[in-house]
Amino acid sequence: MKPNLLDVEHVNKIFTRGGFVSRRVTHAVNDVSFSLAADKPEVFTIIGESGSGKTTLAGMILNSLTPTGGQIRFRGRDLREIRSRRDRLEFMSHVQAIFQNPFDAFNPLKRVDRYLFSAAKRFMECRTPAAAAERVDESLHKVGLSLAEVQGRYPHEMSGGQLQRVAIARALVSNPSLIVADEPVSMIDASLRMTVINLFKKLRDEFGVSIIYITHDLATAYYISDRLIIMQKGRVVEGGDARTVLAAPQHPYSIKLRQAVLSVDDAWRDDSFTGGMPATAT
């Protein structure tokens, strides 16, 4: 049997701060388990507020943090075994990350195409500039851009949506099978947000890339995810099929989260804005 793409098994992460006298322990991720099947690409969403441990979990999946307990396996291989430079490069070519703010992710003094070319050289062993350019152009086309548009431009010359698409193109250079996207659209303007969100759908459907989408925005999560988990203080409080969970959440915290989402449709109902506060004279 083919191993799963990703197995996260009873993963814990504990951070300790302070020394001998005042020791403070933060249980950032507490017993989280899920797995992604190898043959069925999907958008798997992790929902949580700030401090819920979702970014720590992403760090462990990317193998930049080591779990305190439990195991994460990528294609059946424990991430702890991936130590040598060669193994790490190999792992990185399969698992790529996209971050929240594209303006922070790119160095403002570096042309954006340099990131793409160095990814092509490192992961795809493109020895000649022409081979690298072809590779880069191909992945830029997947995100609706082209090398001609991007070449020689600095981050400030592009809009947030464009730059985030370049970040995705960079992640795609190595033909990854898993992309971890940490709040990829929260810094992007409303009119450009949907281009990025729709792009994730396209990656899943056309290129068979599985995506772990980390967000606190329930509406976009509903729009693109297949499955999701909701995290609170490091624990998974609810999980399952995205539409089922968001349509009828069961756990008190998920219900609270669901109710806190401001909806345009409910806006003109009379009771929409009491928000638990005492009613005021109008």
Partner: peptide, 26 residues
């Protein structure tokens, strides 16, 4: 038309219709 786009592209829980993105940049 800009407002019309902004409003219609808002993802909503319970609405599974694909949303069209606006081409180009500001």
């Amino acid at each position: 038309p800009y407002t019309a786009h902004l409003i219609s592209s808002l993802p909503r829980i319970g609405d599974e219709a694909p949303k069209k993105a606006l081409e180009g940049s500001p």
